[in-house]
Design a protein around this nucleic acid. Sequence first.
RNA 1: CGGGAUGUAGCGCAGCCCGGUAGCGCACACGUCUGGGGGGCGUGGGGUCGCAAGUUCGAAUCUUGUCAUCCCGACCA
Length: 491
Amino acid sequence: MSKEITSRQQDYSQWYNDLILKGGLADYSAVRGCMVIKPYGYALWENMRDQLDKMFKETGHQNAYFPLFIPKSFLSKEAAHVEGFAKECAVVTHYRLMNDPNGGGIIVDPEAKLEEELIIRPTSETIIWNTYKTWVQSYRDLPLLINQWANVVRWEMRTRLFLRTTEFLWQEGHTAHATAQEAIDETIQMLNVYAEFAEEWMAMPVIKGVKSINERFAGAVDTYCIEAMMQDGKALQAGTSHFLGQNFAKAFDVKFSDKQNKLDYVWATSWGVSTRLIGALVMAHSDDEGLVLPPKLAPIQVVIIPIYKGDEQKNLIDEKVKDLMLMFKALGIKAKYDDNDNNRPGWKFAEYEMKGVPVRIAIGARDLEKNVVEVARRDTKEKMTVSIDGLAEAIHVLLNDIQQNIYSKARKYRDENISKADTWEEFEKLLDGAGGFISAHWDGSAETENKIKELSKATIRCIPLNNLQEEGKCILTGNPSKERVLFARAY
RNA sequence: CGGGAUGUAGCGCAGCCCGGUAGCGCACACGUCUGGGGGGCGUGGGGUCGCAAGUUCGAAUCUUGUCAUCCCGACCA
């Protein structure tokens, strides 16, 4: 079977690429580092986006849209920010093309040079804060709770489908507050929204934490994150929420009058998740037969495949399926009836397995006589015979069960792959073995963190929230430490 | 930006060493038998061999250059 997919054991990276390409999520494009998101992959993204959008609105946010282009000068206003992004920006320098006077096609018109170059947004803090300056005068204008769904461009050296592409889709929340505490509360609130989404919807367990200084967002005071573990033991940052302090307000001169008519800079947050989550979803649950999608996000939750000889049987099956589809719809189950006669049942079985459809129903003349169908679940590959009476309800229960099961499986895997290291030798041994998260003491210095990264390629993924405080010694330097942090090799 | 590969039909590849009418599998079209795990048989359509120059009577094949993409590293969501 699955003859087209490289196994995880054989080549994990290739397995991942195979799933994306052969599962029909995305394709390479004519542009280096950029991908085409195909309808099936985009449907998955739409489901994620819709749910997140709902959660943002439930927490009081509104959507808006800011320009794709950012004047170059904006980017330099916040020192740490420009340093973080300068190396990976696409720059627009001209606004017109012309026919090459020497023949041979079209060239950039040298006359059409822009006075000030425009940066294609790598993130929108600067253009947004430049705008907020005109929106905020008084504490009455606060808080400002805005989200934007957009594309951004980061000119990365090396790209990977969904995990790191030159252009990607994301959402970025940008909020402004009257007090530091309020902004911190917002930062944590959105971190919790992300964690809830990852766990409840993606069925992907995550660890909430705060980043070390080295891993902090360019321009933030504190960066909070959710970290997930992939099946190869590597970590993947699935979402970030930043407390920006007054850094951007100061850079863009955004002040407000408080109740006492005292002027102060506003406090800011920003938070985002991207199409990278699709990569996380793929790597968290899928197997060597293809994708395994969580029912709550799957574009197709149930596929029905007819098995028949001749029109007579087909007609009988069509009739029955029509009823079933109505019942599925009534329960909000997204079902697809694939009666395409071009492909035979066996082909379809393999195809939908590759696409990760949670439940497959096969229905043939033989089943109709007995008033049953064959139900197969993607996560365990288990098949069972189920009565047509009450089928929709049974499937509803099954979908929930699958959602739970893949979460539990991922959770179990992750928990089994978090280990403690108390010496450098242990640390290295663990990393070169199963990998995973390694909980270890660290002396808190950026220097030590860099050295550990250099020696082992592992980085501090996060300092978990509500972390246990305990005395210990840094695994590298032996200097005193108050708590363990999570290390891992990461995507 | 360093290292490694690859560009030949829509996709995956062979052919290149040793130059002589461009091939295979899948997909596609038509017909037919089929149908409970990627079907069988038959017929058929589709390619300036990435691009450019050179060597040659003759280049997918040899030479030089060039462009592009992918993979592995350093950088990052």
